[in-house]
Computed example of a mutant assay.
Amino acid sequence: MSLAQHIQDAWNKQASWLIVLRPLSWLYRLGFNLNKSLYKSGIKTVYKAPVPVMVIGNITVGGSGKTPLLIQLVKHLQQHNIRVGVISRGYGGQGPFPALVNRLSEPDTVGDEPALIVQSTSVPMAVGPNRQASIELLLQSHTLDLIISDDGLQHWALDRQIEWIVLDQNRGLGNERLLPEGYLREPKARLSHSTVIYHTKAKAAQVSNNMHLQIGLPYLLNKNLDSVLFDREKYFNAVVGIGFPERFYQTLSQIGVIQYQAHEFPDHHDYEISDLTFDNQDAIITTEKDAVKFKALLSQNPNFNIPIWVVPVEAVLSSDCYELLKQQLQQVGIQFF
Rank of each mutant, 00 (worst) to 15 (best):
G93F: 01
P96T: 08
V310P: 08
A126F: 04
S149C: 10
A10L: 02
F337R: 10
K201E: 14
P23W: 13
V310A: 08
Q79I: 06
A262C: 02
S16V: 00
L173E: 08
G90D: 13
L184C: 03
C321R: 03
V313S: 14
P245R: 09
V257G: 10
L100I: 15
A283P: 13
K234C: 05
A262D: 04
G128E: 15
N305H: 14
L317H: 04
D275H: 15
L38P: 01
P312I: 01
N130K: 03
A133L: 06
F337Q: 08
G63A: 04
S141Y: 15
D150K: 04
N102E: 15
T67F: 13
S88C: 05
P114H: 07
I19G: 00
V101N: 02
G333H: 06
S134R: 00
T45W: 02
T200V: 10
P245H: 12
S192V: 12
S299C: 14
N222S: 08
Y322M: 06
C321Q: 11
I165Q: 03
F97M: 09
I306S: 08
P114G: 00
R89M: 09
M211D: 01
F248K: 06
L70H: 08
L324Y: 00
G57W: 10
G241P: 11
V228S: 02
P180T: 12
R22I: 07
G152N: 07
T109Y: 07
A115W: 11
D168A: 04
S149H: 05
Q132P: 00
K326C: 07
S319C: 06
L139G: 03
L138A: 09
T277K: 10
L324E: 08
Q79W: 02
R190H: 03
Q78F: 09
A296W: 07
N237G: 14
L34V: 12
K293Q: 06
I87E: 13
I255H: 10
Q5M: 11
S2L: 08
V240P: 11
S318W: 02
G111L: 12
R89S: 00
L21E: 02
V84P: 02
D270R: 11
G63C: 05
G85S: 06
V292W: 04
K48M: 08
L3E: 05
Y183G: 02
G90W: 03
S208M: 07
Y47N: 01
N305R: 15
R29I: 14
C321M: 07
P307F: 05
A291Y: 15
R131H: 00
E186Q: 15
G57S: 09
T60E: 04
M211A: 04
Y47P: 00
L178S: 08
T195C: 02
A99M: 13
Y183P: 01
Q5W: 02
R103K: 11
Q206I: 12
T286W: 01
Y198V: 15
P187I: 11
I148E: 06
W17V: 09
P312H: 08
D112M: 05
V51K: 09
Y322T: 15
L30Y: 15
V53E: 12
L77S: 02
E314V: 10
H142Y: 14
I308G: 07
P68W: 03
Q119I: 10
V110M: 12
G31M: 09
P98W: 13
G62L: 05
L144Y: 07
R177M: 11
R247Y: 14
I71F: 08
K40Y: 05
I82T: 13
N301Q: 10
K66S: 11
N102L: 09
H76Q: 03
W11F: 14
L138S: 06
G128L: 10
G93L: 12
